[in-house]
Nucleic acid binder design. Structure first.
Length: 886
DNA sequence: ACCTTGCATGGCT
DNA sequence: GAGCCATGCAAGG
């Protein structure tokens, strides 16, 4: 069947129909020529109403049943080629069901592009546009982008649809066209035709979308659906991820229902395929000097290699929607770059990742390059010199003259700039994100620095599925620190990292961040000493279950008097006077003078403070006092202060009281409240260096036993919650997602051990660093459900973080955080107890030491409490199963 | 002396 | 081991 004949014929294009077309024939499916089949009224109506196949193909093969609704769907003709979705698991699903399930619309194996079905959109016009967009993986706006993309793509011989699509296309063509197979170039030509063909009205939808979707859309679609649903091929085989054509798609979160934000996702998404080339004809209006297809004398296809994840744009819909753009425009995030010191320096050169530069920026053949217009998010236009210089046998691309822009954005090393493309104009847009800002900086210029590498996370972001992801590709998990903190940075990079840590710093972006609220921290605590657990018997084991949250101890300060006696100081909540207490005293989180049963004379706020002002100052001196340090930190940098508090939250856990008073002498070496003086478990006998042995599976110390027991109940509970949550989330889909971590951390696990690393005496010490050299240790990658527990890890965390690839980085971040915090707090001053020197040295020297630890994070008390008091240092050990950058 | 520019170096992936 | 890229550095203005 040729389009010529079909178009010229006076009879209905439906071969089963001999009716004459009317003067104004109804339009049917798109032919390979790009024309639409002319149908008689009857057939046209049938087509438009979606019953064409039922009417005319009822007796032909190709009928299948929708896996969801069981409705019959014809899968064997061109007419119906887009009325179903091929399921990964086999079978098909009708579009209606597919829409319900918000699954990917396209059948990758089908050359949708070749079979434009204008009425299709009509047939589904009852579907909400948004849903249809989701289905199509594209919105009305995004198709506009297709022409340039296709133009720039398909004209390159190497960018023709490649395996497996090439085969699929042919196959499909054969199916639909009676084994008529077109040469690839012909196909491309058709696509190009389609892409350039103006399509009116409702037909607009569909055409280009299908063109692109049929070729490639899963990656994008999954992204725009907030579903991490990369096809395996995309995940596993880079070679299949970057193929000739590309797709832009509209986010379901369209602004004003108009703007499609492409590829935006809280979850870092791979940018548009690199093969999607810069369209020299439109981009910035600059002449590409005929280099559009070839760069460095090589076809662009060579640059299909994947971008490193660190360059994946991570802007959210929210971010992009800050960009004031034309309502018909679509923003395609291209890549991002974390500014190095050089980038942000006065030199004004921003080094561009080579692949990004070559893929998304106009091709340049001369080192002088081109002036490049880039819009910032306020619409201001900047002109940078995009150029390169030879570097070895390669090139090094830079944007020159960025200093004004950088300064305008108040960016500095560690901040991130994101390059996007505005379609169809092809303009480049440069957004930015402050390293310390939790919210995208497309709009937010606020700098919420937390210098210590810790970060916190705001509520909003946790609950807004369209906001920053809770778990990004690298498993980023954020937690709000201290409920009172409303908006806190999502992540930060330490600008103080040495140059050798740059990579590390970049990778830190992929970090999972560990944050605890005070309440959550309580979940890590052991029960109050006199709390009677309920006993649950599971599989023959008795478990102590504490339904009530444990008590947080009050932060206190430890000093040593002249005779070397440990002294503990606590501050009254009401009068703020400091009172001397037994070192092993247990304090409620809200402690007042009236609770001072140890010193009746000072059990009232009216009683004078024992400490002189000078003594108090000494007490609160940086080396001693967390509060004072925090105050200072807060003055210097409120955000650091926030992080400090977050760490203190953890640190305060160490103050958690123990039921039985521990002798002062034991305080310094007590690892855990459950460890008793004389305990010979592996923790207690461990040297303070952190290099000691780890808990083995066979370890039967109190802690390990508890962990084991607790682990099982935890898993049971989690499974139950999980199933409940899944059911819940199904209902609440697209609404709001329950915070991930809260559930974990708020799990009323009364035992610190279950959630925390079994810790060494010194908070900076890592008993179990999760290093790989312990064959007895269950690898972190092992599922916690497999019945084995790495006693040195934190099962909940591991479970939650399991999909993550960057534990090491997270660990590093946290270690860094810890270090910074500890350094700031200068733990365990000379006023500390006997072990303070060791602690100090670890605090200081541990900086380098810990950073080398791969898996362990020990968040110790921010002051000497944890070490020298009953409270054990809280060690949270997050095990890394994979390294960054997977 | 300072800045800019172009290239080289070396750490890192 | 190759390539990338952050940064150093020398030459020139």
């Amino acid at each position: 069947m040729s389009s010529a004949s079909s178009m010229s014929s006076k009879v209905c294009f439906n071969s089963d129909c001999k009716e004459l077309k009317s003067e104004r024939p109804k339009k049917g499916w798109r032919l390979r020529t790009g024309d639409l089949a002319d149908l008689c009224d009857r057939c046209g109506s049938a087509y438009e109403e979606g019953r064409f196949c039922e009417t005319f193909h009822s007796n032909v093969s190709g009928w299948r049943s929708c896996e969801s609704c069981r409705k019959g769907v014809h899968c064997g003709c061109i007419v119906s080629s887009h009325s179903f979705v091929l399921l990964d698991s086999g079978g098909i699903e009708c579009l209606a069901c597919a829409r319900k399930n918000t699954i990917l619309p396209s059948n990758p194996a089908w050359p949708s592009s070749l079979f434009f079905h204008p009425p299709l959109s009509e047939r589904f016009k009852d579907l909400p546009g948004k849903s249809w967009n989701q289905l199509a993986g594209s919105g009305p706006a995004s198709w506009k982008q297709a022409p340039s993309l296709l133009n720039s793509t398909i004209s390159s011989p190497e960018l023709h649809f490649r395996v497996p699509y090439e085969v699929d296309i042919s196959t499909s063509i054969n199916k639909a066209n009676g084994n008529e197979r077109l040469p690839a170039c012909s196909l491309d030509r058709k696509i190009e035709d389609l892409s350039e063909r103006p399509v009116s009205g409702s037909l607009t939808l569909g055409a280009q979308e299908i063109v692109v979707n049929g070729i490639k859309c899963e990656e994008k679609t999954s992204s725009c659906l907030n579903i991490s649903q990369q096809p395996s091929s995309l995940k596993e085989d880079p070679s299949t991820t970057q193929f000739g054509s590309t797709v832009t798609f509209a986010s379901p979160n369209e602004r004003n229902g108009q703007i499609g934000v492409i590829g935006t996702q809280s979850q870092p998404t791979p940018p548009p395929p690199l093969a999607k080339q810069y369209n020299g004809n439109t981009h910035n209006g600059l002449d590409s000097s005929g280099e559009t297809q070839i760069r460095n004398g090589r076809p662009r296809a060579e640059y299909r290699a994947r971008l490193l994840p660190r360059y994946w744009p991570r802007c959210t819909d929210q971010e992009l929607q800050q960009i004031p753009i034309d309502s018909n425009s679509v923003i395609t995030p291209l890549f991002q770059k974390t500014l190095s010191a050089s980038d942000a320096g006065r030199i004004g050169r921003l080094v561009l990742p080579k692949k990004c530069a070559e893929a998304y920026f106009p091709p340049i053949s001369q080192p002088e390059g081109l002036p490049l217009k880039i819009l910032d998010t306020k619409g201001k236009e900047w002109i940078f010199q995009f150029r390169f210089w030879p570097n070895n046998n390669s090139r090094m691309y830079v944007l020159e003259g960025v200093t004004p822009c950088i300064q305008s954005m108040q960016l500095q090393a560690g901040d991130t700039v994101t390059f996007s493309r505005l379609e169809p104009e092809g303009k480049l847009v440069m957004g930015f994100r402050k390293a310390s800002s939790s919210t995208p900086s497309y709009q937010d210029n606020e700098t919420n620095k937390i210098g210590n590498g810790a970060s916190t996370h705001g509520d909003v972001e946790l609950t807004d599925p369209n906001s920053w992801s809770k778990v990004d590709k690298s498993g980023y998990i954020a937690k709000e620190v201290l409920g009172s903190k409303s908006s806190v940075p999502r992540k930060r990079k330490s600008s103080t990292l040495g140059s050798k840590s740059k990579r590390l710093r970049i990778e830190n972006e992929d970090l999972i961040e560990l944050k605890l609220t005070w309440e959550e921290a309580q979940g890590l605590l052991r029960p109050p000493p006199n709390h009677i657990p309920s006993i649950v018997v599971l599989e023959g084991f008795e478990f102590e279950e504490y339904e009530d949250a444990p008590i947080l101890g009050k932060p206190t300060i430890f000093t040593t008097n002249d005779v070397g006696e440990n002294i503990r100081w606590a501050q009254c909540e009401d009068c703020l006077k400091w009172r001397k207490l037994p070192v092993n005293s247990l304090l409620p989180s809200k402690w007042t003078c009236s609770d001072n049963s140890w010193d009746p004379e000072r059990s009232s706020c009216s009683a004078a403070q024992e400490l002189s002002a000078e003594q108090l100052e000494d007490l609160l001196a940086p080396n001693n006092s967390a509060p004072s340090r925090k105050m200072k930190a807060a003055k210097q940098d409120p955000d650091k202060f926030e992080a400090l508090e977050g760490l203190d939250t953890l640190a305060n856990l160490a103050i958690m009281g123990e039921g039985e008073a521990l002798p002062a002498s034991a305080q310094a070496t007590t690892k855990h409240p459950r460890h008793r003086p004389g305990c010979s478990c592996i923790v207690c006998i461990q040297p303070p260096s952190g290099k000691g042995p780890k808990h083995k599976q066979t370890c039967t110390c109190n802690v390990c036993l508890t962990v084991k027991r607790r682990f099982r109940t935890l898993m049971l509970r989690r499974e139950k919650k999980q199933s409940e949550r899944e059911a819940e989330s199904t209902r609440k889909k697209q609404q709001e997602q329950p915070p991930l971590l809260p559930e974990i951390l708020l799990d009323d696990d009364p035992l610190p051990c279950s959630n925390t690393e079994i810790s060494s005496p010194n908070h900076n010490q890592e008993v179990n660093d999760g290093s790989d050299d312990d064959p007895n240790m269950i690898r972190p990658s092992a599922s916690p459900f497999k019945g084995q527990i790495d006693l040195n890890i934190q099962p909940e965390r591991e479970e939650e973080l399991s999909p993550v690839s960057d534990f090491g980085s997270m660990t590093t971040l946290l270690q860094d955080t810890t270090h910074r915090c500890l350094r700031q707090q200068s733990l365990s001053s000379s006023g500390g107890a006997g072990d303070s020197p060791g602690t100090q040295s670890q605090s200081d020297g541990g900086g380098t030491g810990e950073e080398k630890l791969s898996n362990g994070i020990t968040l110790g008390n921010g002051h000497s409490d944890g070490d020298e008091n009953r409270g054990e240092p809280l060690s949270i050990n997050v095990s890394a199963s994979t390294s960054a950058n997977g």
